[in-house]
Every structure is written in structure tokens, then in C-alpha cells.
Design a protein around this nucleic acid. Structure first.
Lengths: 138, 138
DNA sequence: CTCCGTGCAAACGATTTGCACTATG
DNA sequence: CATAGTGCAAATCGTTTGCACGGAG
């Protein structure tokens, strides 16, 4: 494990991520960071989000939609996904226990439903426990 | 809503999808269909999966991983995702109630955890209830 | 000074689309 | 026959990577 340097870019990316009250995708975060560091590259944003999540400073979110999203809040909580604009917000665990029973409002969202996804290792991958698999799905 | 023709391609795609006991991604399904229809195009597979899910014949699965996956089984059930090879299987609801408490085996899978995702409409999208939003996240 | 990190452009994987042709109903 | 569906290639979208240069420690 190599040591991380705190570059100006990394600092601003983290700062902007923490500033947002929902979970922007990389390109949206890039647009905001660019206002403070106009010469920054989108690749730098991607690289830093990845590095910071590997370091445990932020967390990668598994969520619907094709874009990657990250969370600076490391505590346990669930997320809510807007099926129209693809925005992703937090939803706390207590609230979700209530809302899981029947659709209702939460943080202004009109909840349509919820899904549960399990993850782990399939039979085949348990056997050939080699290569990949460390930084994949979770 | 326009009417669907039952082309040979569509028929075989559906047949191969139903035949599999897990949830192959488009490229994998394409490889199998190609054995029966060697001249079929990958684009046709994508188009048909999309059309059939819009028609309600099959269902689009929201799951981790970058590839789209579809389900011919329309009943309520959850899914399990292999973080190593990205295979996706079914997991039935009763079993998942048990397995949600502590990691254990299911269908040979070694379960590492589960996540819950809510979906619906964000405040902003509820206001401007126009365009898109029909065929998106669910 | 040493390398980790950067910007740029090109590469990439998954999916979508424009177009002229085919074939279903 | 009308027009939904096809195959192909090119386009698109989100993300990653190779490389030469720049700056943090």
C-alpha cells in the first residue's frame, strides 16, 4: 500500500463531494471542481474517486443507473434513486423500515418501491479462489 | 403502442433466455443465440431485450455490475450477484429473509451481505412531470 | 530528488443508432 | 404491401489508460 499525497485537486474534489447533499456522478462533480480548478481533467476526478474509495476515505455506492457514485458518509445507510433524473440521495435506516411497507414520502421523494440485492461468491468462484475479486462489487 | 411481430430472432432470444437458470448479459446471450442463428447481430439482441421488457414479456433487472440483465420470470424475487465473476442468480424471498440476518449459503453462493435500494421520484421530478421517466429505472 | 499525481488524447467496453434491406402479418 | 424488424458499421456514453511532464514531501 502506497502513501497518498494531498494534492490540491484531491483536496477540492473531496471538498466538493462533502459539500453536496446528494450523490453526484463523476461528470457532475467534475463540472463543479472545474469552477475552482479550471485546468483539471475528468480523468483526475475518476482517478481520485477510485483512489480515495480504496483508501477508505470515501465509499463507492452500488446503485441503479449507469454512472458510478460515491459517498463521503461512511455510516450505514441506504439510498434512494430517482427513476426519472437518476439523482441519488441518502435514506436513513429507521425511515426505510417504515417506508418499505408502503410507498410514501421521504425527503420529498415519492417512493415507488424498493429492491434487495444480495452479493457474495458463486459456487464456481469459491472453488477457483484466485485472481480478481478484491475490489469488484462491494 | 405498436404491435410486436414474432420474428425468428425474437423467438430464439426469448427461448434461450428462458432456458438459462441464471441471468446472462446481452453478449453472453448473443453467443448462445448465434449458435442457432449465425447471422444475427448483437444489436438485434439488445433491441429485442429492450422491446420485450417494455412489452412486459420479460423484466429488466436492476443489479450491480455494468451490464444489463433481464429476467423472464415476472414473479417477485430478489437476486444475488457474484462479486468475482458478476454472475447473477435468483434468490427467493423466503430464503432471503433468513439470509439477511447473517451470511450463509444459498444455492451454493457464499453470501457476503445485502443492500437495499429505494426508488421513486425526487421532489424536482414530481413537479415537472413531463417527458421521460416511463421506461427508466424499474 | 523521488515518485505519485496530473493533463491530454487515445483506447475501451457496453450499448445505441442511422441506414438500406428483409420479411412478417 | 405497409411498416416493424434486421444486419452492419459508425456513433455514443461512461470510464480507463499510456505517456511525458509537474509538484508534494
Amino acid at each position: 500500500m502506497k502513501k497518498l499525497r494531498m494534492t490540491h485537486q484531491r483536496e477540492i474534489i473531496l471538498q466538493e463531494l462533502k459539500k453536496s447533499n446528494y450523490h453526484p456522478a463523476a461528470d457532475e462533480l467534475y463540472e463543479r471542481v472545474k469552477k475552482k480548478l479550471p485546468r483539471i481533467s475528468l480523468a483526475t476526478v475518476y482517478r481520485n474517486l477510485e483512489i480515495l474509495s480504496e483508501a477508505g476515505t470515501i465509499r463507492k455506492i452500488e446503485i441503479s443507473g449507469r454512472q458510478k457514485r460515491f459517498d463521503w458518509e461512511l455510516d450505514q445507510h441506504n439510498h434512494i434513486y430517482c427513476v426519472q433524473c437518476h439523482r441519488v440521495d441518502n435514506i436513513d435506516v429507521k425511515q426505510s423500515r417504515k417506508t418499505s411497507l408502503q410507498p410514501e414520502d421521504h425527503r420529498g421523494y415519492k417512493i415507488a418501491g424498493c429492491r434487495v440485492e444480495f452479493f457474495g461468491y458463486c459456487p464456481e468462484c469459491q472453488n477457483k479462489q484466485q485472481k480478481k475479486g478484491e475490489k469488484n462489487g462491494l
